[in-house]
């Protein structure tokens, strides 16, 4: 058991290391010259000299393997450098925007996994009925409609209703807000300020629901089809013949085999949701890791890009490892 967790952790760490190297190489081959940006986009006769100086300062004149090695060393020892675009410590920018995105994504998934499961079970137990068909159609629609379009419609609707949907919290509160955890919902509760809590919740719910739409209905569809099959599985039929009640039958027999797969599905979907979150954050003018990544890319801000890439990868690896571990615990047949 412990050996399995150790191996899983080791695998995760080597993945992180590999990804850091890949991230650096990707930026290296990407178009755009970081030295040019670092030197302040110089023009004129001595521009070439300034760019060369900047390149030396950034270590870009070294051979590639030296660049990679020193980058990995510096990165893993915690000095992530300064953002070229924002001229502020990368760690600070990434951490701050990461918390904003985490708040959004956590909220989305806390809604979407139970909701998707419930809708799926509801559909499976009424398969073939009108409501099943209606839910099937609307889930296909909500899975395929582009996120930015949904976000724009939501912003317009909220605006017409006289609600202020933008940002994470009303700018009035921003001065008072003491950031303890960086999650505004928690911080406002710690400050004992229900008004701030409600304001940030009201601004969080619409974008979170838009991000949640995809995983919710993806899970619902999956559960609908898998559970329908499971209901005819030998061991479910056997429980039926032994007179086990319907509720127990669905939760303890049919659904037991579906839940580990749903968690895996949620883990994989988390990757897509990061991209969705970036789009939705931009429309709703929220801070977030997606926005930071887009701005960094536009300005060849390689320390920022690599750090963002690193943090996102770390989260995805952590989420998927956690899902694997949970799945192992749920299925007694899987040997650890």
């Amino acid at each position: 058991m412990a050996g399995y967790y150790a191996r899983r952790a080791l695998l995760g760490l080597s993945l992180v290391l590999g990804l850091t190297v890949v991230a650096y190489l990707l930026v290296y081959v990407a178009p755009g010259d970081p030295a040019y940006v670092w030197a302040g986009r110089p023009r004129g006769p001595r521009a070439a000299e300034a760019i060369e100086l900047a390149a030396r300062e950034l270590g870009l004149d070294q051979p590639l393997y030296v660049q990679v090695a020193s980058f990995v060393h510096r990165f893993l020892s915690g000095s992530w450098g300064t953002s070229i675009a924002f001229k502020r410590p990368v760690a600070e920018i990434v951490l701050r925007s990461f918390k904003a995105t985490a708040e959004l994504l956590l909220f989305s998934y806390l809604v979407s996994v139970p909701l998707g499961l419930s809708i799926g079970v509801f559909m499976a137990l009424r398969r073939g009925s009108g409501i099943d068909l209606a839910l099937k159609l609307s889930s296909s629609l909500l899975i395929s409609v582009p996120r930015f379009w949904l976000a724009i419609i939501a912003v317009l609707a909220l605006y017409i209703l006289g609600l202020q949907p933008f940002g994470r919290v009303d700018p009035r509160y921003l001065v008072e807000l003491r950031e303890v955890t960086g999650f505004y919902l928690l911080d406002s509760l710690l400050m004992l300020r229900p008004d701030v809590f409600l304001d940030s919740l009201a601004r969080l719910v619409p974008p979170a629901l838009i991000v949640a739409a995809y995983p919710t209905f993806y899970i619902a569809k999956y559960v609908r089809f898998t559970l329908s099959e499971r209901l005819y599985e030998d061991y479910v039929m056997e429980a039926v013949s032994l007179g086990v009640s319907r509720g127990t039958l669905v939760t303890r027999y049919a659904l037991r085999g579906v839940i580990p797969a749903v968690l895996q599905l949620a883990g994989v979907n988390f990757v897509y949701s990061f991209v969705d979150a970036a789009v939705v954050e931009i429309v709703f003018m929220r801070e977030g890791i997606g926005r930071v990544l887009v701005e960094g890319l536009l300005r060849s801000d390689y320390p920022l890009i690599v750090a963002t890439f690193f943090v996102v990868s770390l989260v995805l690896i952590a989420v998927n490892s956690a899902v694997d571990v949970v799945q192992k615990r749920l299925d007694p047949r899987v040997r650890i």
């Binding site: 599985e233 030998d234 039929m237 303890r252 037991r256």
Partner: peptide
């Protein structure tokens, strides 16, 4: 009647027992 007055011994017992319980 099922699970009350009549029960069934299944064809494939290994597949008929809930693997998660």
């Amino acid at each position: 009647i099922r699970g009350r007055v009549v029960t069934r011994i299944p064809q494939n017992p290994a597949a008929s027992l809930n693997p998660y319980l």
